[in-house]
Design a protein around this nucleic acid. Structure first.
Lengths: 247, 247
DNA sequence: CGCAGCTTTGAGAATCCTCAACTATTGTGG
DNA sequence: CCACAATAGTTGAGGATTCTCAAAGCTGCG
């Protein structure tokens, strides 16, 4: 786990088979590591960036801005996520990237990623596949926002975080925790902070979760998955067929 | 416009510079063209597909399914869109693809697209970039769903369709029309059909649009863009910098 | 001509929001 | 180390948005 991009390699290889050359190419990179406080914008809309942000620890939000300056979170990223890998093909940001709490970030130069993309077709496909997973999460979020009532929606987001955290190996102990404030959570789920507080209490009363300041703990996973109508297939957590590039 | 993939090439080249070899490779493909009625599923969740669907005419919806069988539309595609280009890196569908009205579809084999992806790095980047645009639309939809009241949300979706149709060149006459039923529209926008009807009437009373059975016409574009707080940057309608692959 | 799908309208109800006040916890400067 | 500020979460009450249910008119198609 010593190489900067090790967690990113782990992430990619859960979804794609990678050649040892491609892996070596990634691990050879040595990007700058920076630590940021919450609410310090890493990327702002309109900015043209020449690096992508790899989350090493902490939580990072991708947001969209309305013309009155208010923001809405579209996605939240955890350790191992290259949270704006999409900036490689589109360096002009229409989005913003901001840590939700103290976070360690590697700023990986686009040049390096593009060079590897051109050199290794399997890695190119893995990059593509990872942004597909990201898009799939966005599609699911959009449909839960438009189709599910707030309580089920919140439960769904909790389930997603639980499983993503599990796969990323960022769990503290063996309980599934979401280390996020209720206001960030409310922002993502599209409910007011007040209503979020009540929903979480209701879920806690049912025995599905426990809440603590800045943290949500899943205590009955089967229950919350039932409430959420959760089916993890959209997360692309299994590897692509190996013969994908064989022709 | 005679080659099957001509519209797709046009779509890609609005966002990416492509070599003549890559273009020739695409235009050489000769996929099967099929015509489908509305509500005939092209792809269903769980299915593993070996082709991607290129919309030649008509409207096609991408939907997610809940466990009770109900569906929600996450995105709508128009002529020139490869509506499940994302199935190339992820052939196992968690989504569904269904025409919203009569539609002509080319079923382009994954094998062909993967072969071209490996052969032409610029095309690979263009594919990636196009799915980024798709994801960007999803991110914007998610944030409008969570952050804007129904009326502004509906206006935003109308603006998006107007400009996408314009770029794709599928406008009838010089009026910006969205040839979609209110129920599909309501589905995408996350409102009930009843409320959608009232919102559209309100927008029509303000002089922004006109409605007809199965059609919405924009008559005051500046006004509806103001109502929607619309900023088209997220649609990635300009070309990527040319030096993107020069290293 | 009849049926099926689309749209509209009305009315009552549920969900969820806003406002406001208050508590608890964490961080900061003197 | 304490006072104070800032952040996070909770609770109550009233109200706005939006939903559901029900019914009816309209349009196009077989």
């Amino acid at each position: 786990m010593s190489k900067p991009l090790q967690k990113f390699v782990n992430r990619l290889t859960t979804r794609s088979a990678l050649s040892s050359e491609a892996i070596a190419g990634l691990l050879a990179l040595d990007p700058v590591k920076t630590t940021h406080q919450a609410r310090w914008d890493l990327v702002r809309p309109g900015q043209t960036v020449d690096f992508a942000c790899l989350v090493d620890s902490g939580l990072v939000g991708r947001w969209e801005q309305f013309s009155d300056g208010s923001r809405r979170i579209a996605a939240i990223y955890i350790a191992g996520d290259m949270c704006d890998l999409h900036s490689v093909p589109e360096p002009k940001a229409s989005w913003g990237i901001t840590p939700l709490n103290r976070a360690d970030i590697y700023q990986v130069p686009h040049d390096d990623l593009r060079r590897l993309f051109v050199k290794h077709a399997d890695l190119a496909m893995a990059f593509w596949r990872d942004t597909i997973a990201d898009a799939s999460i966005l599609a699911k979020l959009a449909t839960t926002l438009s189709g599910l009532p707030a309580r089920e929606r919140v439960a769904h987001i909790i389930c997603e975080f639980a499983i993503r955290s599990e796969v990323a190996g960022v769990l503290t102990g063996d309980t599934l925790t979401v280390p996020m404030t209720q206001s960030h959570f409310a922002d993502l789920a599209g409910v007011s902070v007040v209503h979020m507080s009540r929903i979480l209490r209701s879920l806690a009363e049912d025995g599905a979760i426990q809440t603590e300041r800045g943290e949500i703990r899943v205590i009955d996973r089967a229950l919350i998955e039932r409430i959420a109508d959760f089916d993890p297939r959209y997360l692309l957590l299994s590897r692509a067929p190996k013969q994908m590039l064989s022709r």
